[in-house]
Design a protein around this nucleic acid. Structure first.
Lengths: 342, 342
DNA sequence: CTGCCTTGGTAAAAGGTTTTACCATGTAGA
DNA sequence: TCTACATGGTAAAACCTTTTACCAAGGCAG
C-alpha cells in the first residue's frame, strides 16, 4: 500500500468551493467576516475529509514549533530512575494537556560539545527546554542565560548563572530533617549527601549543618560522606560513617535512594533502625513508603515542580513573563525510620 | 534581550555572493556543478555565520520530519521502570546516532480516543512510531497495519494483527527456565505470569507449560498466578502459590520484578531460597544481579531489541524494507536463586 | 448621480528549503 | 563560421499555512 497522503487545506477548499484563505479563516475562528453558510460548508468539508493542518507549515509561518525538549543527564539508567521519571511524567502531562509535544534529549558529552542544545533552537526543533539533573559543571547552560532561548532548570539552580529555575527548598529540607532529629534527642549525626557538583546537594547539606550549629553541634568532616545519590552509595556511606564513629545515632541522607541503601548498610553494620540508628531521607519517592521500616523523609513536591516548570516555560516562550525563579516549600513526612535517641 | 533570529540560507547567500540555489547545492553536497572557489566561499560564509537549516522548512520540502515517536502505555511510573527505561535508552541512543529526534507520547485513554496516534502522522509530527508495552486489547493499533504509517511493536507482537515487531522469544524463555529447573530435579512448580492481555506473557507461559508437559508434568490452575508484572504482585503471588500447594519446590516468573517480589514472598512464607524453593526470573535487568540471593534468570536482550526496532523503523520509513518481523534468541543466566531439588 | 461604507470574499506574500528546468559563456570540432 | 557540448550558475516552482491587502457588489446619503 502506497503512502496515503493526508488531506491538505487545498483539498478542503476545492471540496467546499471556497478559497484557501476562507478555509483558513474559518478553521482558525478568524471568521468575523465570513457568512454563516460559507462557514458551515467549510466546516462540513473539513469534517468529512478529516482535515488536520500540517504542523510543519504552521510552524514555518508562526515561527513556533509546539514542541518542548527535556534535557536529561547522561546517567546509567536515567530513564529508569524514579526521580527523573516523576519529573518527566509531570512535564509530559502538563505539556500534552496544553497541546505541546515533548522531545527527549540526553546531555551526553557529544551533545554539548557539538552545541546540540543550541541547534535545538536554531534548527526550529523546539520552543523551549527543560533541564533536569544539571550540575554546577554544566557550563553549556550559559547559552540559556540569553532570553532568545527559553529554558528552565528543573528542581535545581546555579548560583553562578542567571538562569530560570523552579525548585524546592533543599536548604529547608535539610533543616527540617535535622530539627526533627534534634527534637528526638539525637546529638551525634552522620550526613550522607549527594554529588557535590549538584547545587541542591550543597543546599541540603548547608541546611542540615545550619540547624545542627544552631543547636551547638558541629560535626567533623568524619561525619560527612558522599553517597553519590545511589542506593549502593548510601549503603557504603552508612557503613563507613558508622565505622568512623560508632556512636552515631542518626543518619540524614540527601535523597531517598541513598536512605534505602543506608537502611541496609546500617543493618549490615549490626544495628537496628530505628532502635540503634535513626534515618531521615529526602524526596518522598513512592518506594519510601514501602521500605522496612517505612522511611521518615522530607517530601519534595516533584510532580508539582515538574508541572510548574513546564507551565512557566510556556509563559516564557509566549513572552507572558520575563524571568522565572520559583522556590517551593517542603514538608516532613514522619514514618517509622526515626525514633527518640536512647 | 529580544529574540535573536537564527541565520537563514538567504543570509549566507548574500554574505557569499552566491544564489540561494548555489548555497543549497553546496551545503547538500549536490555540488558536482559548482566550482571549487564558489564552494569554498559558500562554505566559509556558512561557517562564519554558524548556519543551520530550519528543520521546519526542510521537512515541508522533503515531507520528512526527522522525528520518531515512542508510545508508552499509561502506567503508574512508566518512566521510572527499568524495563521501559532500558528500551527507551536503546531507542534514543540509536535514533540520535542517526540524527533522529525522539518524541515522547503516553497512550492514555484520551490519546487513543482522540486518534492522536494518527494525528502524529497526519499533522507531520513524526515519520514513525515505536510502540512499547502494548497489549492485545490495544485496538487502535489496527491503524498501523497500513503501510502509510510506519510503526513497530517493540518486544511484543499481536497474533491477531499484521503489525511489524521486533521481540525476543518469550516462549523459548519459558522453555529454558523450565528445562533448567527440570534438570535440577524439580517436579513441583509454581508459575507467576504477567498480565494475560500481554501476548509475550502468554508466550512465556506456553513455553513453560510445554517444557513441563514434555517431562510429563501438567500443573493445575492452582499452580498459576498473575503477578501483574510488579514486585508487589510477585510477592503476593508467591505467598498464594505456596499456600495452595506447600510442596512446590520451584517458582518461575515472567519477569524479574515479579521474581524479586517472589523472593521476599517466599521468605515471608518461612522458606529459604534456593534451599527450599528455587526461583528463575526473566529479563535479566540490572538489579537482578544484586538481589539476595542473586537471581537466576533468562536474559532477554532488551537494549538490542530497542536498537534493532529503531533501526528497522527507519528502514520502513525510508522504504528500504516492507515488513519487519524479528525474533531474537534469549539465554539463561545462572546465578544463585535456583538449586537442585532435595 | 456620485461618493462612501458594508459585507463577503479572495489574491498574493511570507515563512525557509530543495529541486527542476533553464540560461549564459566558453571551447572544441567540422 | 557555425554547431555541439561542457561548465558554472541561477530563477522559479513546490511544499502548506497564515495574514495582509485588496476587490466587487450592494446600499445609502448627499
Amino acid at each position: 500500500m502506497a503512502k496515503r497522503k493526508a488531506f491538505r487545506i487545498r483539498d478542503i477548499a476545492r471540496e467546499s468551493g471556497a478559497s484557501l484563505t476562507t478555509v483558513s479563516l474559518v478553521l482558525n475562528q478568524r471568521d468575523e467576516r465570513i457568512s454563516e453558510s460559507t462557514r458551515q460548508r467549510v466546516l462540513a468539508a473539513a469534517q468529512r475529509l478529516g482535515y488536520q493542518p500540517s504542523r510543519l507549515a504552521q510552524g514555518l509561518q508562526s515561527q513556533k514549533t509546539g514542541i518542548l525538549a527535556v534535557l536529561v543527564p547522561e546517567l546509567q539508567h536515567v530513564f529508569a530512575d524514579v526521580y527523573f521519571g516523576e519529573l518527566l511524567s509531570a512535564i509530559h502531562d502538563h505539556a500534552s494537556a496544553v497541546n505541546y509535544k515533548v522531545l527527549l534529549e540526553v546531555a551526553h558529552p557529544d551533545f554539548v560539545s557539538q552545541a546540540k542544545h543550541i541547534e535545538l533552537f536554531d534548527r526550529d526543533y523546539v520552543d523551549g527546554v527543560l533541564c533536569i539533573g544539571v550540575t554546577n559543571k554544566d557550563d553549556y547552560l550559559v547559552d540559556f542565560e540569553d532570553r532568545s532561548r527559553p529554558a528552565i532548570i528543573v528542581n535545581n539552580h546555579l548560583p553562578a548563572r542567571k538562569l530560570n529555575f523552579v525548585r524546592c527548598d533543599y536548604e529547608e529540607a535539610g533543616r527540617l530533617a535535622a530539627q526533627y532529629l534534634l527534637g528526638l534527642g539525637h546529638r551525634r549525626f552522620g550526613l550522607i549527601h549527594g554529588a557535590p557538583e549538584v547545587q541542591t546537594s550543597l543546599d541540603w547539606r548547608a541546611g542540615v549543618l545550619m540547624a545542627l550549629a544552631a543547636a551547638g553541634i558541629g560535626p567533623t568532616p568524619d561525619h560527612l560522606a558522599d553517597g553519590l545519590y545511589t542506593e549502593e552509595g548510601g549503603f557504603d556511606a552508612a557503613i563507613e560513617l558508622l565505622r568512623r564513629d560508632p556512636a552515631i545515632t542518626a543518619i540524614l541522607t540527601g535523597n531517598d535512594k541513598m536512605a534505602i541503601g543506608a537502611l541496609r548498610g546500617i543493618k549490615k553494620s549490626g544495628r537496628g533502625v530505628p532502635l540503634d540508628v535513626s534515618v531521615v531521607g529526602c524526596d518522598g519517592i513512592h518506594l519510601s513508603a514501602f521500605t522496612d521500616p517505612a522511611l521518615t523523609t522530607v517530601h519534595t513536591p516533584l510532580y508539582d515542580i515538574g508541572r510548574e516548570a513546564c507551565r512557566l516555560l510556556l509563559d516564557l516562550v509566549d513572552n507572558r513573563i520575563d524571568r522565572a525563579e520559583v522556590v517551593r516549600p517542603v514538608s516532613l513526612t514522619v514514618r517509622e525510620s526515626a525514633a527518640p535517641a536512647t
